[in-house]
Amino acid sequence: MTGAVLRVNPLVLLAVGLGSLLGSFAVRDLTTGLVTLAAYALAVVLTVPSWRYPLLCLLFCSIAAASVVWSTWRLGGHDEAKAFTAGLRILVLAWPGSVAAGYVDPARLGDHLAQSLHLPGRFVAAFSAALQRFWSLVREWQELERVRRARGVGPSRSPLATLRYAAGAAFALLVQAMRGASRASVAMDARGFADAHHRTWAEPATWTRADVAGLAVATGLALVPLVLHLT
């Protein structure tokens, strides 16, 4: 728990996700899967500032993995080893990337996408501003929840009603998000974004020694399942 993940270059974080995704294809047996997952877990524990978010990601990925285990077991001739390997593969594929993505700083990611990877400036600026707005949706959801509860249409104990409630609130959030997006786009265009064909970047995109080390670790982790598979 060092919080190193907050200081590292956002492209390194994306490399972790991409590496685990590619590496997961080499997960062909239980041992490989378990060792790879343990390696990523160690890396996560050593670098994140708090355990809550990684555990939440693990929970969601586990739901996906469990459904894969179940269907593989049902359809794959009741072979437990094969089923659990398939589940582990999903965890290796999705979990490290979902954790890493959460810690990306939108502005720094924008700097690097545009200056290190030379992606189109307008696209990058819009993408970075959109990521920036993501957290305002959380607040918006809380407000919607409050109003609905006071209107007598809040979540209740019946699962069906809760489902209907969630669908209605999600639709309202979507409407709010789209309205917010058009207001934001007017505000951005009024700040010269409309005719920004050759944007510059106020901050340089730098690579430190720690970033290079981070990239090496990401590559190393991605190679773990491949090496285990070949030996």
Partner: peptide, 23 residues
């Protein structure tokens, strides 16, 4: 609605960046 960045400086810099100004 007008916020585009997490830090004050970077937010104000959005316009000049769009104009293509130097650092």
């Amino acid at each position: 609605d007008a916020l585009v960045a997490a830090h004050v400086g970077r937010d104000v810099a959005f316009g000049p960046e769009n104009l293509g100004l130097g650092r």
